[in-house]
């Protein structure tokens, strides 16, 4: 590798890490929350860290911590995780067209670290060209490292903290959802999608659909957006 190439490599690396910082500030406290809850649920430090390393899907890990605490059987924990994380199908499909030139094992590594938040970060930028692989993987790895770090801190803190609610830690996930929605919204139509999907999901939850309300409402809400787009473009033409 020449000095010039190496320089580009290093700058792509630091650019990736810098771009991930806002996400790190979200992941460390949420990872910490997970660590605390996992510790309270009776997971060993090793298992809590393994879940953050191998599963690496925030909301499903928080949900799973609750299920472990409640003494749920393994099969039901795995099935719930599957349903909560099924939305990654859609994220992966949305990102795939941008990475046509990538090798299969590079895609395999990318997919492994694909989360709602890294998706949001990448999707916005890929529209105007895919940055270097070094930068993309720097972003993904920085994000997961911060998630692991948060988890580790949380496990330690879990042994000290007795009252999780006094710190508002149970609000981390809703607050993160709100922030991510606000950052995503670019046109007024998306506000409509957010409100309709949210209301539908809430209604389905009330009807007692377990974890399915998220998937059903997401499919319906995203489809509604396409239907209105079709309708308005036909009217204007």
């Amino acid at each position: 590798m020449t000095a010039g190439q190496e320089g580009r490599h290093v700058s792509a690396l630091s650019a990736g890490i810098l771009k991930t910082l806002p996400l790190v500030f979200g992941y460390v406290p949420i990872g910490l929350t997970f660590g605390v809850l996992a510790q309270k649920a009776g997971l060993s430090a090793f298992n809590a860290l393994m879940m953050s390393l191998l599963v690496y899907a925030g909301s499903s890990q928080l949900v799973a911590a609750g299920l472990f605490a409640a003494g749920a059987p393994a099969a039901s924990i795995i099935l719930t995780t599957f349903v909560v994380n099924l939305r990654h199908l859609l994220l992966s499909a949305a990102i795939a067209p941008f990475l046509e030139s990538w090798r299969r094992r590079e895609l395999a590594a990318f997919a492994y670290q694909l989360t709602d938040e890294t998706f949001a970060l990448h999707a916005a930028r890929f529209q105007s060209g895919v940055p270097s692989k070094t930068e993309v993987f720097a972003i993904n790895t920085t994000a997961q490292m911060s998630w692991l770090m948060g988890t580790g801190l949380g496990v330690v803190l879990g042994q000290i903290i007795t009252d999780v609610e006094a710190f508002g830690l149970d609000y981390v996930l809703p607050a993160l959802f709100i922030a991510l929605i606000a950052v995503q919204i670019e046109e007024t139509k998306q506000i409509g999608i957010a409100l309709c999907t949210g209301a539908l999901s809430l209604t389905l939850r009330m009807l007692g659909l377990g974890q399915w309300h998220v998937i059903i409402a997401t499919v319906a809400g995203a489809s509604l957006g396409v239907v209105t787009k079709l309708w308005t473009s036909e009217k204007s033409s």
């Binding site: 994220l91 709602d116 949001a120 991510l180």
Partner: peptide
């Protein structure tokens, strides 16, 4: 399909948010 997939992040986040704060 591309338009549908673009709607997914906002939709899935809202679908998780509303029950979390209103139920």
């Amino acid at each position: 399909l591309a338009a549908w997939l673009r709607n997914v992040p906002v939709a899935v986040l809202s679908a998780m948010l509303f029950p979390a704060i209103m139920a």
